[in-house]
């Protein structure tokens, strides 16, 4: 998704690969190269953050925080051998997860393990921002409902779903990013889909009863 005001960027930038643009920005301080990178990837990054947080203000803050880190760390931390977007995604993911964990309340969770979903109370505790707060965006009803259901998924299941959806990230990479085995990542995806199916079924049931 390109930005509305991206017309001033010459066409040759559109034809460049990410790594060329990154090189131009790092070595020659080329602002247009950075803007082109933003044009290419901002929507995916923002969508990931928003779908995890589901609050526009917070998503804006995390998005900005992510890019502040990207700009300041690009010279030191980023290795041009790797994919730039994967590196940015890691920063965005860490910033998002940090925020979610800060929001969670400290409660005793030891006795509330749910065998069915393989989650404990801590995982199922909704994030402070999550429930019903994805109202600021101009979204159609079905998308809003879908986002609401995704918001009700445990954090680690939501993470796998969103990384896969927005980045088409292989499960191996998701596993590396989240620090789990590939089987755990696949398992989380499976439970996420099963949980979403339940939520859709319940919703469908409610609608049928209302009718």
């Amino acid at each position: 998704m390109r930005l509305n005001n991206s017309d001033h960027i010459p066409r040759r930038y559109e034809q460049m690969e990410d790594k060329e643009l990154v090189h131009l920005f790092r070595k020659k301080d080329d602002q247009l190269a950075f803007q082109e990178l933003m044009n290419r990837h901002q929507a995916k990054i923002y969508s990931y953050i928003y779908s995890m947080i589901q609050n526009r203000e917070t998503a804006n803050d995390i998005f900005q925080e992510t890019f502040t880190k990207v700009i300041t760390k690009m010279d030191d931390t980023y290795n041009e051998q790797g994919k730039w977007i994967a590196w940015v995604m890691r920063i965005a993911h860490n910033a998002t997860i940090d925020h979610i964990r800060k929001q969670k309340r400290f409660v005793d969770v030891s006795s509330s393990y749910d065998k069915e979903s393989k989650t404990d109370f801590y995982d199922r505790l909704p994030d402070e921002d999550t429930p019903g707060q994805h109202d600021q965006m101009e979204l159609d009803e079905s998308t809003s409902r879908l986002l609401k259901h995704i918001g009700n998924l445990p954090e680690e299941q939501r993470t796998v779903v969103m990384l896969r959806h927005y980045y088409e990230m292989p499960f191996k990479e998701i596993a590396e990013l989240t620090g789990v085995s590939i089987n755990t990542a696949l398992g989380r995806m499976r439970y996420a889909l099963i949980n979403l199916r339940k939520m859709f079924d319940e919703e469908h049931e409610k609608e049928s009863n209302n009718v």
Binding site: S51, Q64, L139, T143, L147, L196
Partner: peptide, 18 residues
């Protein structure tokens, strides 16, 4: 899930990042 749209960050935020 494939119906999930891509959401663009607000223009002001992108501007400040640039």
């Amino acid at each position: 899930l494939e119906k999930l749209p891509e959401l663009s960050a607000p223009q002001g935020v992108i501007q400040s990042v640039c």
